[in-house]
Simulated assay, not measured.
Amino acid sequence: MPVAMARHILVKTAAEAEQLKQRLARGEDFATLARKHSTCGSAKRGGDLGEIRPGQMVRSIDAVIFKKPLNVVHGPVKSQFGYHLVQVYFRD
């Protein structure tokens, strides 16, 4: 079964996600922004979600993790929890 490792930042609005994405594009640190802005419990780990297998995450996030290119910030991706910026850093 495939396995991936990813990190994310979860915020309430698409506008907030877009602002954070622009800050990331300018070179700000993902983990620092996740700790400061993410509403997910993973924020204290810099947004790190750890090892993920297909079906563990909501469908929209699962699709990003297992189908989109590595080491790129994807999003904002909408889910029932809010808006995510997702970066996959390992996939096997």
Rank of each mutant, 00 (worst) to 15 (best):
residue 1 M to V: 12
residue 1 M to C: 10
residue 1 M to F: 08
residue 2 P to S: 14
residue 2 P to W: 10
residue 2 P to K: 15
residue 3 V to A: 13
residue 4 A to T: 06
residue 4 A to I: 09
residue 4 A to Y: 02
residue 4 A to R: 07
residue 4 A to L: 06
residue 5 M to I: 12
residue 5 M to H: 15
residue 6 A to Q: 02
residue 7 R to N: 03
residue 7 R to T: 01
residue 8 H to F: 07
residue 8 H to W: 14
residue 9 I to Y: 00
residue 10 L to M: 11
residue 11 V to E: 02
residue 12 K to Y: 09
residue 12 K to M: 11
residue 13 T to P: 03
residue 14 A to K: 15
residue 14 A to N: 11
residue 15 A to L: 12
residue 17 A to R: 01
residue 17 A to W: 00
residue 18 E to F: 09
residue 18 E to C: 09
residue 19 Q to H: 08
residue 19 Q to N: 11
residue 20 L to E: 01
residue 21 K to Y: 00
residue 22 Q to N: 11
residue 22 Q to R: 15
residue 24 L to M: 03
residue 24 L to H: 02
residue 26 R to L: 12
residue 28 E to C: 08
residue 28 E to R: 10
residue 29 D to E: 12
residue 30 F to T: 05
residue 30 F to W: 08
residue 30 F to C: 08
residue 31 A to S: 15
residue 31 A to L: 06
residue 31 A to G: 15
residue 32 T to L: 11
residue 32 T to D: 08
residue 33 L to K: 07
residue 33 L to D: 03
residue 35 R to H: 12
residue 36 K to G: 03
residue 36 K to H: 11
residue 36 K to I: 03
residue 37 H to Q: 10
residue 37 H to Y: 15
residue 38 S to C: 10
residue 38 S to K: 07
residue 39 T to P: 00
residue 39 T to S: 14
residue 40 C to Q: 09
residue 40 C to G: 12
residue 40 C to I: 03
residue 41 G to C: 05
residue 42 S to H: 14
residue 42 S to N: 14
residue 42 S to T: 13
residue 43 A to G: 11
residue 44 K to F: 12
residue 45 R to T: 07
residue 46 G to W: 04
residue 46 G to D: 05
residue 47 G to I: 01
residue 48 D to P: 04
residue 48 D to W: 06
residue 49 L to N: 04
residue 50 G to M: 04
residue 51 E to R: 15
residue 51 E to Q: 11
residue 51 E to V: 12
residue 51 E to N: 09
residue 52 I to D: 00
residue 52 I to Y: 01
residue 52 I to P: 00
residue 52 I to M: 06
residue 53 R to D: 00
residue 54 P to A: 07
residue 55 G to Q: 03
residue 56 Q to F: 10
residue 57 M to G: 01
residue 57 M to D: 01
residue 58 V to G: 07
residue 58 V to W: 03
residue 59 R to N: 08
residue 60 S to G: 07
residue 60 S to R: 14
residue 60 S to M: 09
residue 61 I to G: 01
residue 61 I to P: 00
residue 63 A to K: 15
residue 63 A to R: 15
residue 63 A to L: 14
residue 64 V to E: 01
residue 65 I to V: 15
residue 66 F to P: 07
residue 66 F to S: 10
residue 66 F to A: 09
residue 66 F to L: 08
residue 67 K to R: 15
residue 67 K to Y: 05
residue 68 K to V: 00
residue 69 P to N: 04
residue 70 L to R: 08
residue 71 N to V: 04
residue 72 V to T: 11
residue 72 V to H: 10
residue 72 V to W: 02
residue 74 H to E: 05
residue 74 H to N: 05
residue 75 G to D: 00
residue 76 P to R: 02
residue 76 P to A: 08
residue 76 P to K: 03
residue 77 V to Q: 03
residue 77 V to G: 04
residue 78 K to N: 05
residue 79 S to K: 10
residue 79 S to N: 08
residue 80 Q to H: 15
residue 80 Q to S: 15
residue 80 Q to Y: 11
residue 80 Q to V: 14
residue 80 Q to L: 14
residue 81 F to Q: 14
residue 81 F to S: 13
residue 82 G to D: 02
residue 82 G to T: 04
residue 82 G to N: 06
residue 83 Y to T: 02
residue 84 H to V: 04
residue 85 L to R: 02
residue 86 V to Y: 03
residue 86 V to A: 06
residue 88 V to T: 13
residue 88 V to Q: 02
residue 88 V to N: 05
residue 89 Y to P: 10
residue 89 Y to D: 12
residue 90 F to R: 15
residue 90 F to W: 14
residue 91 R to F: 01
residue 91 R to N: 06
residue 92 D to T: 13
